[in-house]
């Protein structure tokens, strides 16, 4: 009986897939399990722990990253599907190490950060809003996928407006 159980309990063979993708501007290669999520690839394989897991079901937005420039919840993205694509995480928003994106700076100076767990996702979506030419007023709708339980969103909105102003000035 013990042996039977052992057989039954053994996990089925999971194939591994080789993928190449660009993460924060750098070409990277990985060999991952077929069922790997992009979120786990980033956190566990690439060591980019800035992307957070808050629900694992695409409901909270803490794992938001840019995939070819578009915000996506990385807990719902199959890593294998990212072969040949470009991913930007919160660590890469500023373009180079030690540099912050204007929205990240604005979140700091406008008090838009509290517990910080939603913050990487908020920063990524906010950067996409600004890059996509949206008006800051659309922020309320476009940020709705990034749940925040601390700030009441008010100072995130102020930060988005301030960053939009900065981006406009720089253009």
């Amino acid at each position: 009986m013990g042996e039977d159980r052992r057989q039954a309990a053994r996990a089925p063979e999971v194939e591994r897939v080789r993928i190449r993708l660009t993460i924060n501007g750098e070409a990277r290669g990985f060999e991952v399990a077929a069922g790997r999520r992009l979120l786990d690839l980033l956190r566990d394989d690439a060591g980019l722990i800035g992307t957070k897991e808050g629900c694992g079901a695409g409901e909270c937005g803490a794992c938001t990253v840019l995939l070819d420039g578009k915000p996506v919840t990385s807990c719902l993205v199959l890593a294998a599907s990212c072969d040949g694509h470009a991913v930007t995480t919160v660590e890469g928003l500023g373009g180079s190490p030690g540099t912050m994106h204007p929205f990240q700076r604005a979140l700091v100076t406008h008090g838009g950060v509290q517990c910080g767990f939603c913050t990487p996702g908020v920063a990524v979506t906010g950067a996409a809003i600004l890059a996509g030419g949206h008006q800051p007023a659309e922020g309320a709708r476009l940020l709705a996928g990034n749940l925040c339980r601390c700030t009441g969103y008010e100072k995130i909105f102020s930060a988005l407006e301030a960053a939009a102003e900065e981006v406009r000035r720089d253009e």
Partner: peptide, 21 residues
Amino acid sequence: GRHPRIDAAAKVTGSTRYVAD
């Protein structure tokens, strides 16, 4: 006043290590 929070810059760049990290 409104000086930047002590923990904001690390949180907003994703470098703060929560327990899952």
